[in-house]
Amino acid sequence: MTAYLRQFGTAFRFLAVATVLLGVFYPLVMFGVGQAVASAQANGSIARLNGQPAASTLLVQAVPETETRFFFPRPSAVKWDSTTSGASNLGPSDPALSKAESAARAAVAAREGVAESAVPLDAVTASGSGLDPDISPAYAELQVPRVAKGTGLSADDLRKMVSEATSNPVLSLLGQPAVNTTKLNLAIAARLK
């Protein structure tokens, strides 16, 4: 028993040392390194519009349902709220999932004025994080005519902006091609000013 008690004493003292070195010193040093070499990323990749902080380019931004001038991101289980995160966690054979997908498909098709069969899957499924800013190039292309009409920008201009907001070929290969709606919508907002 005394052997055990002695080990407990050692354990708590070891944890105290570990807490100082690993729990305080290490994150503070990494904070210093981050601010020194990559402060933009370390601070959340914040993009500005007219000098004002407008978004983190890594996180989704909500687009109001009635909006006609911007590109819509994917559905979100946390309603695009960046103070939280998460997925629907609906099982693959859950009827609630197919119901949500059908409803979203009908809504997207009506909004964009296309057939339901033309709506890609990323447009009707919620992401794992709920904060995914990216959509497929197919879903972006689907929205181009509506955004062109809503903004008065030409479809060709918009396609150029879409391709500027698309992941580079290396990232597209390691993951899949992704169009960042947060960057894209900021670019459109800048043009509309």
């Binding site: 981050g34 990323q41 004002q52 983190s56 996180l59 103070t83």
Partner: peptide, 27 residues
């Protein structure tokens, strides 16, 4: 960090230009 993971100690307030609503970016 260089690739984009955050390392700071504060949230950042931004204004969503689409809605004019303020959004909190976690830190």
């Amino acid at each position: 960090v260089v690739a984009g993971v955050v390392q700071n100690f504060w949230p950042t307030a931004v204004t969503n230009p689409l809605t004019g609503v303020s959004q909190t970016i976690p830190g």
